[in-house]
Design a protein around this nucleic acid. Structure first.
Lengths: 210, 210, 210, 210
DNA sequence: CTTTAAGCGAGACGGTACGTCCGGTCTTCGT
DNA sequence: ACGAAGACCGGACGTACCGTCTCGCTTAAAG
């Protein structure tokens, strides 16, 4: 896998054009034909590349897919733009979760992301890489926003932020993966509200106390 | 798929022995060799059955897997035993989530369940069946427990119970599928506590008000 | 290899159409593209057959080629027609050797026969089969003609007929395989004459003695 | 091919060490793994040489093999030592043919020679080169011995010596290539005797005539 | 005595074919 | 009539080599 590509030892004569062609082909193919019909041969053919060039640099179909996502996620120069922070945590979270839903519902990303999830679920090594390179950075942004809210006293002090992130995005992703219900903006709102307030009853009247 | 097996029209000359052998073989195979190496041929060979017998009765590998789970879930006579209801919602939920975690961590179920999830995520028809026959009944039990708590005033009145269930099990399943962290009993506890109380700070002192 | 095809055990459900298509395709292909470019994939494609069907029934490319020759050689119903026997041994042998030369020079047979020879030279098992099924019967016919001549007193009494056959056909085949010279009818004649008379001088005058 | 190596134009900066390493590797490899598994990559690897160095100087695998034989055959300083000439043609020929048989039966030469023959049979250009550089000189030696016998009246006057050589070595080589029988010293003797005397009966008694 | 250009080891590259596995379909036989 | 057995066409697997193509390095020649 192209994990340590940056240093690129002087003796590594890797063809960058082929690399990008392969990743692009993989991403496009999986979105066109679906995960089940995604084949290394197909990727090689579409990329105009020999199969060996894929096997030389990636250990599995999932690794190719992973790098394809990595390439996409690295598009922006400044890399990670922070999550919106208007001071209104609830509104900000709803914005972000609605955006997540939109992406999951986008036919351009739906199949590829399901494919990546499938590979991750069956390959711990890939999962570790995913945690480090893709999920990790994103999760850090989310935790930053939550930390900011915590400082503003909008979140419980002892809160485990990883659990908090799971509470917000877990339900969404699970509903998407298991197709256990429609992913609507309303659902995003419900998740945010319920997560913030908790399942227990809150004494609403007390909120306005001095 | 064996969806309408109950009526068993008189003309259905289906061999029940073969059926069970196939489902058992499928379940055992996937747990032994993993999802990627699970093949219809392998199932047929292990079940001592012709391939055609599988193709005759199931439309896909996922459908076989699904029926295998269905068979397992129907073992108990009384079918659906309700969730524990000691009156202490938090404790009951922790018990149940810890049990869920134990099952997901059980090597006998881990691979098969990942396989089923993979099939569901890539096959809407299977997902619908899953929602109806496997997830649905289980979700109903969960909601019953929550309704009971709601009646006891332990849950917010306007609560959408489906969202509540998602809030409790979603994070767990997502962490399991994406392998984004260890599934420990502590994690289950955290989820339950955070879900019940919400992410916002609670004025603890007020709880003791009349 | 299809060595014991005749009995065709009742459980062998071999597709005769595919078999003939494969053998025909192999023969035609080798004569069109040559031995070096002859591939199992090519044969399968031209025969409209899955590769596995070839690998199921033949252990090697050479074996397919061998069976292709076998099929061709079995065309005639009565199988083995004897060699011409006009009573004039020298004339008969020249006729037969000239025919052999014509066949070797025929572009339809040249490449295929070279290919078969190559396979035989590198595969003793195939060579044994060749000796038994193709070369053997032909050699028997040749020896029959020589035996007839021997009875007529036209050949030396203690002659080893296998050596005699080698003396007649060996030079020809060797010149053809090694391309060490043109295969002309005159060459056939020279071989026959020299083989019959020997390299030593004959006292011509003594021939007319009583 | 290294046909005109001797003049070695002043601009040819060819590495003689690599050249010998390649030829040696080729010869050893073919005798170890056989013709079918002989690959340019394998030769390059064993010779510790880049593939390009082979492709730069030889047009084909067969050409490398040919040069390997050429290198071996050039070992002796004086190049071509004549065939034995004791005056007894029959004995001399038996000696030489027995030596030929021994070489063909030698496992060190068997596979390589079969390989070379295979390349020759499928490549006319190589065959021409073979005729000129390897077979030619050897054949000339054989013909010299026969000419000497002819002068001594031991061979027929009008004899075509090329045919004579073919009559003696053709049967041998053909039996070897087609594996149609064991190559024993007795077989060599039979060939020599039969070739010299011819297949026809000889009036033995007349030999002692004045 | 530097330049400079070739030969060289190395090995990536686009390809072709290998021999195997499996997917789905179809056919034959035995129960 | 069903089911086991398995042949069949086809597609993909992961590997081995093909012949071409850079890359730096070494080395001999021409300036």
């Amino acid at each position: 896998m192209t994990t340590q590509r940056k240093p690129l030892s002087t003796t590594t004569r890797r063809n960058e054009v082929s690399r990008r062609a392969i990743l692009t082909a993989a991403f496009e193919l999986v979105q066109e034909v679906g995960y089940a019909r995604l084949s290394i041969e197909g990727i090689a053919a579409r990329a105009g590349v020999g199969k060996q060039t894929i096997y030389r640099w990636w250990p599995s179909k999932g690794a190719v897919l992973f790098d394809a996502f990595l390439m996409l996620s690295e598009r922006p120069d400044g890399e990670g733009s922070a999550l919106p922070d208007t001071g209104d945590l609830e509104a900000d979270l709803k914005t972000v979760l609605r955006a997540t839903i939109e992406e999951l519902n986008d036919p351009r990303y739906d199949e590829p992301m399901r494919a990546l999830n499938t590979e991750i679920t069956h390959d711990p090594a890939l999962a570790a890489l995913y945690a480090e390179r893709l999920d990790g950075p994103m999760r850090e942004l989310k935790k930053q926003r939550l930390r900011s809210a915590q400082r503003a006293g909008q979140l419980a002090g002892g809160l485990n932020l990883d659990v908090a992130v799971d509470m917000l995005w877990g339900p969404l992703l699970n509903r998407w993966l298991q197709r256990s219900g429609a992913l609507t903006p309303d659902y995003a709102d419900s998740i945010v509200e319920t997560a913030l307030n908790g399942l227990r009853p809150r004494r609403e009247g007390l909120r306005s106390l001095p």
